[in-house]
Design a protein around this nucleic acid. Structure first.
Ligand code: FES
Ligand code: FES
Lengths: 186, 186
DNA sequence: CGTTAACCTGACCGTTCAAGTCAGGTTTCA
DNA sequence: TGAAACCTGACTTGAACGGTCAGGTTAACG
């Protein structure tokens, strides 16, 4: 019943990426994420590396590089993220769909605890596998507007560029999507 | 999203106590619980001590002693047990009702992650605070009977006693209920 | 062409915590 | 009195968590 800091940071960063994308800024550098969310840069880097290896984010190297989402926001479910970072959703292994393991219980078929925990697992997985980054970004943006909070991720540079040089500047570099490394959960 | 072994063992033991009670054997010695559930005796002892301190089980000392439930089975909710042993149900502290703590998020009011986790917390707490030991013991017993599994906790001694000496033997010693020690969760 | 800003990657490290174990005590029954 | 049971704190051991560090590589820009 606990979400690790790693998991928390991963999701906060991803939500930020989704919001930024909705506002027209797909690419965010690590420094910006780290600063806005108050997360130690080196730690967040490690997490983003893991997310990239799993094909959830993509990155652009070099100056003016950064991270962006590797898939449409409505195809990234929270269940996927948490399973990647924190392991199975089930509170106990004998009810895990993706990482089942027998427990020391003598009679699994008539275990009361198992029935109960199966209920819990289904409830949790039901929520986490239903909502996507798109859903959350959407609601958050709506809330921000309702409360008239100044939009985050309004890039001064880009805004200025819009007024200054309406030309074809900024050729929107293509993010290199890393080959997905299968990451089993032992 | 994880239930500790401690928590698992605690609940398995409690469910056993509830079932035994329903079958007319309120008092079970540690050895029997430990053996039936395949739990290291010393470890289970430690757990039962904690449950006793919290007023969930009671104990009888001396020879032929043992443990029993300190309250009616329909007044022991699983939420209570898990909160005692494993701490708050919420996956993240900023959505915990009983142990709230601010997280490093810059803007709690518009945090997408928080909304989602609140949903999860409510689902989990909804289940765990609804079901009681009575519910689970009941369903389990029904299942056992349906599948014609020989009832556990049929004490040979007691059965024999029934046939041998129908007198007032076995004065059903009163379990001493330990004064409840408040156990805050820091 | 060199500087610089960014990402890449593995190795390391200190603290906490889970899961037990151990040792010795106390209470009660036969 | 001896055995069976509960009582209680102290200890251990390994893994996991939450980070940090160091040294790469890549690409834009002047
Ligand atoms: S079968 Fe897993 S807890 Fe009983
Ligand atoms: S407010 Fe707790 S995660 Fe954002």
């Amino acid at each position: 019943m606990k979400l690790s800091k790693r998991g928390e940071y991963a999701m906060r960063a991803l939500i930020d990426l989704a919001i930024a994308q909705a506002l027209g800024r797909a690419l965010l550098p690590l420094s910006e994420l780290s600063e806005k969310e108050q997360i130690p840069a080196a730690f967040l880097e490690q997490i983003l590396f893991q997310l990239r290896s799993a094909g959830i984010v993509a990155s652009v190297r070099g100056k003016h590089g950064g991270y962006c989402l590797a898939k449409p926001t409505d195809q990234i479910r929270f269940g996927e993220i948490i399973r990647l970072i924190d392991g199975p959703l089930a509170p106990i292994r004998c009810v895990s769909q993706v990482a089942y393991a027998r427990c020391t219980c003598p009679d699994e078929a008539h275990c009361g605890l198992r029935m109960l925990m199966l209920d819990v697992r289904n409830a949790v997985a039901g929520i986490l596998d239903k909502y996507t980054l798109a859903d959350v970004a959407d609601v958050t943006l709506r809330k921000l507007r309702r409360d008239k909070v100044p939009s985050p991720f309004v890039p001064p540079a880009e805004l200025a560029a819009l007024f200054d040089a309406p030309g074809p500047a900024r050729p929107t570099r293509r993010a290199r999507v890393h080959p997905v490394v299968p990451q089993g959960q032992p």
